[in-house]
């Protein structure tokens, strides 16, 4: 079962999905990503300042989606590649987000390795391309 995200819902999140805009709580100073109505850290602040996150972080946890485990929106990619890696990335600014990894090194990769965000097609539904972030190993960019 996939979690269908309607076009209006996706549209509202364009800033966070396209360029990682998070919210800095004016009360505790922690960064919420994705944005929340009330700060998830101090559970008191409800005023925020928008901040663009750097897209740099490290692998906090990782897994591989294989053997028909992909939700329907990712089925085409899974069919092409057989399997694809997914990680929880801890961003330099603090938040942890789930995303796919692109071009995982053949020699393997491990928790703690530096990664950086790349702009990719996440999936396509109703003929509409859903763009967003994936991550690549930071070393690949040098």
């Amino acid at each position: 079962m996939g979690a269908h995200i309607s076009i209006p819902m996706y549209q509202r999140a364009v800033a966070q999905r396209y360029r990682l805009v998070g919210q800095k709580c004016t009360k505790c100073g922690k960064i919420n990503f994705p944005p929340k109505a009330v700060c998830k850290y101090c559970q008191a602040g409800n005023e925020f300042e928008n901040v663009s996150l750097s897209g740099k972080g490290k692998i906090y946890s990782k897994t591989v989606i294989a053997g028909g485990g992909a939700p329907p929106e990712f089925a085409e990619e899974a069919k092409c590649k057989g399997s694809y890696p997914v990680a929880i990335v801890e961003l330099d600014e603090g938040p942890r987000i789930i995303a796919q990894l692109v071009n995982p090194p053949e020699e393997g990769y491990s928790i703690g390795m530096p990664v950086e965000a790349v702009f990719r097609k996440i999936y396509e539904e109703e003929g509409v391309i859903r763009y967003g972030f994936k991550f690549r190993m930071a070393a690949q960019s040098v």
């Binding site: 590649k81 702009f119 990719r120 994936k134």
Partner: peptide, 9 residues
């Protein structure tokens, strides 16, 4: 291009 790339990405 990889399967998740296009001219916009």
């Amino acid at each position: 291009m990889d399967i998740d790339e296009d001219t916009i990405t």
